[in-house]
Design a binder for these strands. Structure first.
Length: 162
DNA sequence: CCTCCGTAGCGCCCCCTGCTGGG
DNA sequence: CCCAGCAGGGGGCGCTACGGAGG
């Protein structure tokens, strides 16, 4: 149990609601319900495609201000606030740093239910599961084809030089 | 009280790369 | 030797949840 304190009664009232299942703000398009009108508005924007937060440096736009800040760090400011204490790696998002740290610790929290394989991140496990279903995704195949073309190109180029 | 903003967190997907085993 | 399959490391975005604080 984490103690929550705040300077305002109104914020405490709001916080107390987070302990209930109360979600009075319902989306009329999909039926999903939210605690606050702001969350509902953001959600509705994902239905309508409304993206109020425009990037000043490119054509991208986002539903929330936080997404815009993150985008600008990735693409424009290159600010990486989360530094690895064991190497020079730094990242825009703390979740990426956590994923990176697992490559130092060797931790593999995501266990395959069908074999002994365990992954350091959720998506790698999901990708691995395709090997059990016998399905290779079209995107993987596209990647293979691109690499194949590059290999052929490189080979032809070397052949030409030699 | 309403609302905006910043932050945290989980998820999804992609790219590039190295390794490996079979043809 | 070549190539396809697979896993590792990392970049980027989608979306929800929550708390601080200004109006």
């Amino acid at each position: 149990m984490i103690d929550y304190t705040c300077p305002r009664r109104s914020n405490l009232d709001r916080h107390m609601k987070s302990h209930t299942d109360e979600r009075p703000h319902k989306c009329h398009l999909c039926g999903r319900a939210f605690r606050t009108v702001t969350l509902l508005r953001n959600h509705l924007n994902t239905h309508t495609g409304t993206r109020p937060h425009k990037c000043p440096d490119c054509d991208m736009a986002f539903v929330t201000s936080g997404e815009l800040v993150r985008h600008r760090r990735y693409k424009h400011t290159h600010e990486k606030p989360f530094k690895c204490s064991m190497c020079d790696y730094a990242s825009v998002e703390v979740s990426k740093l956590k994923r990176h740290i697992r490559s130092h610790t060797g931790e593999r929290p995501f266990q395959c239910s069908l074999c002994s394989y365990a992954s350091r991140d959720t998506y790698k496990l999901k990708r691995h599961m395709r090997t059990h279903s016998g399905r290779t995704s079209p995107l993987t195949l596209l990647g293979r084809f691109k690499r194949h073309c590059l290999q052929v190109e490189k080979r032809d180029l070397l052949g030409f030089v030699i």
